[in-house]
Amino acid sequence: MTDESDDAAAPRRLIFGRRRGRKLSPTRESTFGDWLPRLSITLPAPGVTLDPASLFAKPMKAYWVEVGFGDGGHLFALAAQHPEIGFLGVEPYEHGVAKLVMRVAEKVEAGGADNIRILTDDARLLLKALPDASVQRGFTLFPDPWPKKRHQWRRIVNTDTLADWARLIAPDDELRVATDVPDYQRWMLRHILAEPRFDWQAETSADWLQRPADWPPSKYEQKAIAAGRTPHYYRLRRI
């Protein structure tokens, strides 16, 4: 699959699936149309750095990035807990984005912190654009496992993206990844252990089988547990 909006001479291979599902309800579509432009991340030209501070009306203490936020439950919970942090979320699927936009609109209109910005495109574009050591915490939680072997190049946890995270995350800060798919668990660990700039923070099995207390649950995670699957949670410290 390629992105036809890119230069025809160098099409970009997309790693995500569909963008749209069923039609949004009139109320959600209206809020989505009004609020998404206010929350959207505009990427700079290739080779130009995006200062995350430029995305917010006031300075933030730090910047956290979630790639593939689904319906936004985890991201929104963290943003509510940490109004001093600027959150950058990436999700191409319209319904998931619309759910998060609705939550943000309600929160901001009620006087809550305006500390979430959203990219509805390929996460790799944002990771490439951000400056070195500009992110204090990153998240890739329960990404699409792309189980067929011919599709595994689309897995978002890979050598290139881990190298991007290692460049972006400041020393002693953290990347968190999770999956409930056994094959993807093995894939993740193989790639994590091959990236020398990350130290896997695990001493016993409880360290990857139990979600840390400061890690809000996601809707997909809850569905996985209800279906009898076992999530694995990986905390990686930037060395």
Rank of each mutant, 00 (worst) to 15 (best):
K128E: 15
F142Q: 05
A224R: 06
T27M: 11
A206V: 07
G138F: 11
D114H: 09
W208S: 08
G33M: 10
D183I: 13
L209K: 08
S134W: 01
G96C: 02
Q81H: 15
P46W: 02
P147W: 03
A170M: 05
W187N: 07
A9N: 11
A8P: 03
S54R: 10
D199P: 03
D121V: 07
A206E: 11
K219N: 01
A62I: 09
K223N: 09
Y220K: 10
V135Y: 00
W165L: 05
W35P: 00
A57K: 12
D207I: 01
F69G: 07
F142K: 05
Q81S: 15
I116M: 10
D172S: 12
M1V: 13
D214F: 07
A79W: 02
S40I: 13
R155K: 11
V108M: 06
P26I: 11
P216F: 06
A166D: 11
D199N: 09
A98E: 01
D207M: 01
P171C: 15
G89M: 04
P26C: 11
I15H: 02
F69L: 14
P212I: 07
D71M: 15
L75M: 14
L100M: 13
R18G: 02
D121Y: 03
E91F: 02
H95N: 07
P26N: 12
T27C: 10
T140C: 12
G33I: 05
G96F: 00
A105P: 02
S218L: 00
R12K: 04
I225R: 10
T31D: 09
N115Y: 01
V104M: 09
